[in-house]
């Protein structure tokens, strides 16, 4: 079955991190730019990757991620700390994305160049890791491209839930809190999204056969 627990840190470490983070956030509220710098450093990778999977392309992801941090900076005073900062920032990311979507009448387009850029990036990573053979690299690249395309075709909320669960490793409870949805709704939408993805990916048996 799914090995999610291995990704989760131990409770104690988690509590230390959270305390540390509360101190940083207090410093941000007091107007220390260096504290916000630290906060961005801690979350930029997560925020960017979340935005990348939700928007489906590199450029929009950078814009959404930056905008999310700017909104966080504007409203850090209103962050009360009863939720985790991660939950709060993910909520901002999804709100920024949904606002942008509402704003742009035109539908999202994923240009081929952007998709390639994205893949090159992950390809270099994989080569640096040293493990896969060139054939596997090509195949992984193709798979990732097909997978992202399939994710892009999901409705907004399903795509966001898939991203938060599978790439950001958020629990059902946390996703419900981020999106302000009942847990049951989160679960059923995730199931529907997974079924839809499986359906789409079945049409490419050479990659996923």
């Amino acid at each position: 079955m799914l090995e999610r627990s291995s990704r989760l840190k131990s409770d104690a470490q988690d509590r230390i991190d959270q305390f540390d983070e509360r101190v940083i956030i207090e410093r941000c509220k007091a107007g220390e730019t260096s504290a916000f710098d630290e906060l961005v450093r801690r979350y930029e990778k997560r925020v960017f990757n979340c935005a990348l999977r939700i928007t489906g392309n590199y450029n929009d992801a950078a814009d959404v991620a930056q905008e999310a941090f700017i909104r966080a900076f504007h409203s850090i005073q209103t962050f009360r700390g009863d939720a985790k900062f991660a939950t709060w920032i993910y909520r901002i990311v999804t709100n920024v994305y949904l606002d942008e979507r509402k704003r742009s009448k035109a539908h999202r387009t994923t240009s081929l160049d952007e998709a390639i850029e994205l893949e090159e990036n992950s390809v270099t990573r994989q080569i640096e890791d040293g493990a896969p053979t060139p054939d596997e690299v090509v195949e992984n690249k193709e798979r990732l491209r097909a997978l992202q395309k399939a994710i892009n075709s999901l409705p907004d909320y399903q795509r966001i839930i898939v991203t938060l669960y599978h790439t950001q490793h958020r629990s059902y409870e946390e996703i419900a809190e981020i999106l302000k949805l009942p847990i049951g709704t989160v679960k059923s939408r995730l199931n529907r999204a997974r079924l839809a993805l499986a359906e789409i990916l079945e049409s490419e048996p050479e990659l996923f056969g």
Binding site: F48, N49, L52, N121, S122, R125, H166, T167, R194, F208
Partner: peptide, 12 residues
């Protein structure tokens, strides 16, 4: 298979 693939999306 889909779940496994989703879980193996690399971070960039």
């Amino acid at each position: 298979t889909t779940l496994a693939m989703l879980d193996s999306i690399p971070e960039v």
